[in-house]
Write a protein that binds this DNA or RNA. Structure first.
Lengths: 335, 335
DNA sequence: CAAAAAGACGTAAACGTTTACTCAATCATT
DNA sequence: AATGATTGAGTAAACGTTTACGTCTTTTTG
């Protein structure tokens, strides 16, 4: 058995209270006994038991993070940011892969509650009422990343999707494109789906470009669904000169499908993506895309959460800056 | 404050022992009181406190997982497998991003120890002596995934790298290639580096193909380092007709660099990767590669770990099957 | 019908900490 | 020299469970 504070106390001829004080460097002991105790700790390899600590402090220095799919490049970059910030502040993170499944999510929330996590980060999914209610009933601080809640006031950190999407479309327009298609994520996605479509439509409208319904197709956000959907677009609107994809995976799918159909990117078809995953550098040609600072978003979300935990104050939401990363998949049609 | 077992007991007019028995469905109460207690639990929304439980049971139902970089596609797929298995068996997983930094790793191990995790999975890195010793001193079950220990007997789950590499090279040879280059991971990597190089060399040797040192270059396993290193290869051995990359990212880098240099894949240059990440489907053309069943490896590692935790028995190591996924980046040179 | 066994609980200790309270000894202050 | 502060400790309760043990009641058994 690993030694406990009692063993240390006994071997150092002091009370456990004194050992505890030394461990937490509170006042109340002489330098001499401090030396002695530290020495015993070294000899025995004593490690405090965080579980016992947690029980009495009602703090576990552990947070929970929920993702629809941990293994996506998207999620894992956010996770990286969260984990790094958390670790630098002596917090651990429990990951939860919800599979966007309500039952599973609820189960996770219950477990996180039972394990007394100090806070929860909910990422890139729809925060359903029941999720919110159970988190609220457990009185655990919550921050959203890459999503928002329409019905509840929950701090979030994300990009302005509508604006980013507007600017991506505008970018295409300013390069002289007029036949612009969009392959969107899921139609029902009120957070990452709808606003991006709105931004797209708004830009077309503002620049007086008529919108044809066959130029807007809906899929998921992943590569395979991107393939399916871009084929549809190319079939129904073969005169498209540029496509705006709602994710880098879908953009990669566009490049892939185009290549298979003998369409050259960017000579015959321009492509702009969304996210700026590492993938965006790896495509041939490298992908022009809207950057979301995913790692940074994770960092900030963790930062927000920790200050909520430690001060009890909600520091509000954060819209983080996006930008367009110009690489090689968009061709200018001007002059 | 959330209700505790005491509150439930009081409101149900029973002792906390009875409530506990009902919660853990042990015998020792009538159906009637059971109903009553369950009802009170429902009314109050009582949740058992896993921390208090952990303190007395000396089990936290939490495991720790260490990765050099969580955000790589490689790690995140393994993590996915681990997490899924763990969750299905009511375990939580704490992720740790070591950055392949010794100090950080040691810190993580200490934290995991203090938090009393029931087991640790160490992934794709070098299990240094000091790591092993600290884990051992804490008496926590340990499983390695995608790595092994040369000095200690620690169960692992991985692919046979040497063989897989041999077969990848053989595959190229059987397609008629004779000028085969390899871009390897880090030279010092005794686990994922050296064996793959050995397999490569062995295959060349067995098929009587002379090896020239400029056909073997070393980098990291990532895309950027792949770019650097493949340029070197192409410069020093311009007659190369096929390259074997030690990772899919490096293979993607090869495709990318080749394209930039006007070299067509697979017409002028064949490439085979290693890992079969999702990335492998996304390249143009889609990448032929050696599959490692990463998700499955994670699953199995978690399974091993849980049985070690629950039975105390070491179930030994697992070599999981690899295979070659034929896509479009290797051309046959035979008539 | 008495004795034994089973059933239905309650009591209290234990898990490993933190911390409020206590107390004696030393020190500074008037 | 008496008083009050300060220092350096120890004692014990508390955190929320589980569980060994005890007790009382009811049922079974020979």
């Amino acid at each position: 058995m690993n030694p406990t504070i009692k063993d240390v106390a006994r071997r150092a001829n002091v009370s456990i209270a004194t050992v505890s004080r030394i461990l937490n460097n509170l006042p109340g002991y002489s330098e001499e006994t401090r030396k002695k105790v530290l020495q015993v700790i070294n000899e025995t390899g004593y490690q405090p038991n965080a579980i016992a600590r947690g029980l009495i402090n009602k703090r576990t220095r552990t947070i929970g993070v929920l993702f629809p799919t941990v293994s996506s490049m998207f999620s894992s970059e956010i996770l990286d940011g969260i984990e790094q910030f958390a670790h630098n502040h002596d917090y651990s993170v429990i990951v939860c892969n919800t599979d966007a499944d309500g039952k599973r999510t609820l189960k996770y929330l219950q477990v996180l509650g039972e394990k007394q996590v100090d806070g929860i980060i909910f990422s890139s999914g729809n925060l359903k009422d029941e999720y919110y209610q159970t988190i609220k009933s457990m009185a655990i601080p919550l921050v959203l990343v890459s999503t928002i809640s329409q019905r509840f006031s929950v701090p979030y950190v994300k990009v302005d999707d509508r604006l980013a999407s507007y600017q991506a479309t505008e970018y295409l327009i300013k390069k002289g494109h007029k036949q612009i298609g969009m392959i969107s994520g899921t139609k029902e996605d009120l957070i990452a789906g709808v606003p991006r479509v709105e931004g797209f439509l708004q830009a077309l409208n503002d620049y007086g470009i008529p919108h044809r319904s066959e130029c807007l197709v809906y899929g998921g956000f992943d590569f395979n669904s991107g393939c399916k959907v871009v084929k549809e677009l190319l079939r129904n609107a073969p005169d498209t000169t540029a496509v705006f994809a709602a994710s880098d995976e879908m953009a990669a799918a566009t490049i892939s499908v185009a290549s298979k159909q003998g369409i050259r990117v960017p000579e015959q078809l321009s492509v702009i993506g969304y996210d700026n995953l590492k993938l965006a550098q790896m495509t041939v040609p490298p992908l022009t895309t809207v950057e979301q600072p995913l790692f940074e978003m994770g960092r900030i979300a963790a930062e927000q959460l920790l200050t909520m935990i430690e001060t009890g104050k909600d520091t509000g939401s954060r819209i983080v800056p996006h930008s367009i990363i110009e690489r090689k998949t968009v061709r200018s049609l001007l002059e």
